[in-house]
């Protein structure tokens, strides 16, 4: 059985990370603000999962179960973003042939 002291240490670490993430948000890091915030969140999540939720003591099947939920979410997000991030990237071969004004000439209906 995990000693109470361990749980207290984890809780303390979580609170320190909370202060750290709030502090980091007020320093202008440009695009790295989000990265820092997410990194700290991942660390907090890891602490909660490993110690509070006992994944550290878990067997392989249980670890697989833990992993799969997050992995599937990653699939959902990354494959969806493969659309959202590549929209409106101009395709040169067709862009050149398109009429420059949209006034009179309408593209044929799909």
């Amino acid at each position: 059985m995990t000693p109470v002291r361990h749980y207290a240490l984890v809780c303390g670490a979580l609170l320190v990370l909370l202060l750290l993430t709030v502090g980091a948000a007020y320093v202008n890091l440009g695009p790295f603000n989000v990265a820092a915030a997410m990194l700290i969140s991942l660390m907090k999540a890891a602490l909660i999962l490993l110690f509070f939720m006992h994944v550290r003591q878990a067997g392989p099947v249980l670890r697989l179960f833990v992993f799969i939920g997050f992995f599937w979410l990653a699939l959902l997000i990354s494959l969806s973003l493969s659309d959202f991030l590549t929209r409106g990237v101009p395709d040169k071969s067709t862009a050149d042939q398109r009429p420059s004004t949209s006034g009179e000439t309408k593209p044929p209906a799909p």
Partner: peptide
């Protein structure tokens, strides 16, 4: 019950920076 409660905590750990921390440095 414990696992459920920690999970609720886990969701908030990601919600907090996304909701509250954006644009604070500007």
């Amino acid at each position: 019950l414990g696992l459920y409660w920690h999970f609720v905590d886990l969701v908030w750990v990601f919600l907090f920076p996304l909701i509250y921390l954006g644009g604070r440095a500007a």
